[in-house]
């Protein structure tokens, strides 16, 4: 594929996207989060793993902006460092989900027939199973590690992407340029990846953004329930400890509220971006 038209369409896309206020707001929030994650060591004043038995459960003060937890760790540092894990898990899990979903959607839509039937039944199966329940169970089986969490979340949330990609593939397949590509003897592989994929790409982007928000949420939920690696500093872990240590019931809002706000704002940003993208590609939803 030519680089120039792609760039052109990208800048064209950017021009349209810029007009979308909500989408831009979401994008800016995400960028801020990424900056926080990168700059974490420079904008915190304590090592997040440093314990201090004489400074437990401190309310917010000028040394510890968000107070301290039950072993005297700085909650502000923990929250800031938590951004890293959440972003990494969110992106990678969404990547896994999108990869699986896209492949299955493309193959099933392009080849059709029995293969399509089997793949779509499988997709339905995964769509019906309550993902969180399965994640908890599988997480308990595979053992707690970030890699496992990423794989589990990725492998259990590809079905919506697969459905969307399949239906778009079905419509793209009927277009004349596919016919002509077939006529000049292009292989299936070439057709799928050179001709169909670029046309399906916008929908994949929209779905992937939504998948990121689902992944961040699912990861936090897993850790909150105690199925996950408690060594990794993440928002879910802070919430987990806030709940199990009784800090929440003791009314220590500074322990419980900030990580939740971080999660909500970030997932919200991804939902905004995802929805704006969807709106761009599905004119019916467009407001104008």
């Amino acid at each position: 594929m030519n680089v120039k038209p792609m760039l052109q369409s990208l800048s064209e896309f950017w021009r349209v996207y810029r007009e979308n206020k909500l989408g831009m707001a979401g994008l800016i929030i995400i960028v801020v989060y990424v900056i926080i994650a990168i700059l974490a060591p420079y904008i915190t004043f304590h090592n997040p793993s440093e314990t201090n038995p004489s400074k437990v459960f401190l309310p917010p003060n000028k040394d510890y902006w968000f107070g301290t937890n039950e072993v005297g760790q700085d909650l502000y540092a923990l929250n800031i460092y938590g951004t890293r894990i959440s972003l990494i898990v969110g992106f990678l899990a969404a990547l896994v989900a999108t990869f699986i979903g896209t492949t299955i959607g493309l193959v099933s839509g392009y080849y059709g027939g029995l293969l399509d039937e089997i793949l779509m039944r499988t997709t339905d199966f995964f769509l019906v199973i309550p993902p969180l329940v399965l994640m908890i169970v599988v997480g308990a089986i595979l053992g707690p590690s970030m890699t496992n969490a990423i794989l589990i979340i990725g492998m259990l949330s590809w079905s919506p992407t697969a459905r969307v990609v399949r239906s778009m593939t079905l419509s793209v397949k009927e277009r004349p340029f596919i016919e002509s590509a077939k006529a000049i003897g292009a292989s299936d592989f070439t057709i799928i990846f050179k001709h169909i994929l670029p046309n399906v790409m916008p929908a994949i982007w929209a779905n992937m953004t939504l998948a990121v928000s689902t992944a961040i949420f699912s990861y936090a939920a897993m850790i909150f329930l105690g199925v996950g690696d408690v060594n990794d500093v993440s928002w879910g872990m802070i919430l987990h400890y806030a709940f199990t240590s009784g800090a929440l019931s003791a009314g220590m809002w500074w322990y419980f509220v900030p990580p939740g706000l971080f999660i909500v704002l970030l997932t919200f940003a991804f939902v905004l971006v995802g929805y704006s993208l969807e709106e761009l590609f599905n004119p019916k939803l467009r407001r104008f």
Partner: peptide, 22 residues
């Protein structure tokens, strides 16, 4: 309405529950 709905959609249930406990 849409923005608010998306905001609600992003709320983790365990966090909302915790806030209500508070």
């Amino acid at each position: 309405i849409l923005t608010a709905a998306m905001g609600l959609y992003s709320l983790p249930s365990f966090w909302v529950g915790g806030l209500l406990i508070l």
